[in-house]
Nucleic acid binder design. Structure first.
Lengths: 243, 243
DNA sequence: AGTGGTTCAATGGTCCAACCAATTTCTGCA
DNA sequence: TGCAGAAATTGGTTGGACCATTGAACCACT
């Protein structure tokens, strides 16, 4: 099935640079936000050209592991470890309506599973934290007449965290970020999210009762209302003006 | 919500290069496998240094959009369009057993949703194609005594394709690839996949009957059997030798 | 003290001109 | 015609130079 003679990398200097750098970060116990050595210093210490260092750092930058600030330095953006797996995804044509609906279908899948896992695994502390976020959201919803997207998002994040699998938060957050870059004001639907409001508590109830299938079903209903909102928004958009 | 004073872009030369290159690919209607211009030519035509071109191409290479072959040229690996969204994911510690189980939980979520969507959207031709793959898989399973992982994978892919959302195939394929790079022979469980075998047909039956909830439930059962197999494999592994 | 401007060293971004290594293509001999 | 070796092509690497931005130190003025 897999190639019995995996081709060796003839030249893989920048890969070696990245490995060395990962080892360095690990050894120095550098965390997010911390600054790592200058390109010139790295080049000198690793006995490679500065250009090679730059190509390696460009890779890491592309993976979102590192941020370069001209005149200042290069800073870690995430925890790196020598045994990371990278899965770059590119979504073709993601900034139109159809693309948004496609990402929402992925989110529906993940949201439902995260809720189900959370119902199985959440401990007392997790449930208390989720309920706290839910209360905050409901309060914001009532005092600000439906504008509670920030608290809404935090509620969902607390569920992902309690799912016991960090990948849920990671993937959905990445989608959420993209999503907001292109759809900051969701299609001008003023009461966006109204319809989904009640399902937040029903999801929480299922989680608190450790009912995975119930949580899954309620999460699916929630996303369904968001999809409906978006479809109505798109219909409105067609009647008024285009972006 | 959004920053009222978004920071301005200082310099973004290589980004501009990528945009220009994407436009070029689009204009020339280049598809996967085709060769794109030499770095030297690009540098000359775009009036930038070859280094800048290289940084831009390094980005694309990191995203899996392009493949560079020394002495030969740079080739497209995927379709590129000017409006792509990039979502690089890095899974920390994905190559141990816990990491594998985490990715499998993601796959379970996507698999179930894809099956449900497929049950809703698959047309007659799609269903026929899926059944063909199913027949191939069952035949391979019987003649080769359970070794049908290649055909098994193709069956699943046909479901993703018929889901009407290319993101399912994209994400699961990326996971599948990683997965196989580190776990080529799944933990030495000899009858790996035996338990999941019957669910392939039950999933197909639900899809053919346009029963999304049934398809979702059967897909969940299938992945559950795979998880059980892996857990048994891990238990065996602990008793014999470590990797 | 505090405010604003200036200077200056550090750092990432870009450029250039080579050369190296792998690949492909061409050439000329058998 | 066939094929081995030369030559051209192409990505990979190097070293050195300069530019643009940043941030800290310093200074003048209030």
């Amino acid at each position: 099935m897999t190639d019995p003679l995996p081709p060796i990398q003839a030249t893989a200097r920048d890969d070696a640079v990245l490995k060395a750098l990962a080892a360095f970060v690990r050894q120095e116990a550098l965390g997010p936000g911390e600054k790592l050595p200058t390109e010139r210093i790295l080049a000198e210490r690793l006995k490679v050209s500065r250009n090679t260092v730059r190509e390696a750092l460009t890779r890491w930058e592309g993976l979102g592991l590192v941020e370069r600030r001209q005149g200042s330095g290069t800073y870690l953006k995430a925890a790196v470890s020598p045994d990371m797996l990278h899965m770059p995804l590119t979504l073709a044509g993601g900034n139109d309506f159809a693309g948004l609906m496609r990402t929402l279908e992925i989110r529906r899948a993940l949201e439902a599973e995260a809720a189900a896992l959370c119902a199985v695994r959440a401990g007392k502390a997790d449930i208390a934290e989720i309920e706290r976020k839910l209360d905050l959201m409901e309060e914001a919803f009532h005092t600000r007449a439906g504008m509670s997207s920030e608290e809404d998002w935090e509620f969902h994040q607390s569920i992902y965290r309690a799912s016991g699998n960090p990948l849920f938060e990671q993937i959905i957050s990445a989608m959420h970020e993209l999503f907001h870059r292109f759809w900051e004001h969701p299609l001008g639907v003023r009461d966006f999210g109204h319809a989904s409001f009640p399902y937040h508590r029903t999801i929480f109830d299922c989680i608190a009762a450790h009912d995975p299938e119930g949580a899954r079903a309620e999460a699916l209903k929630l996303i369904a209302t968001v999809e409906d909102d978006l479809k109505r928004g798109a219909a409105n958009l067609k009647l008024s003006d285009r972006r």
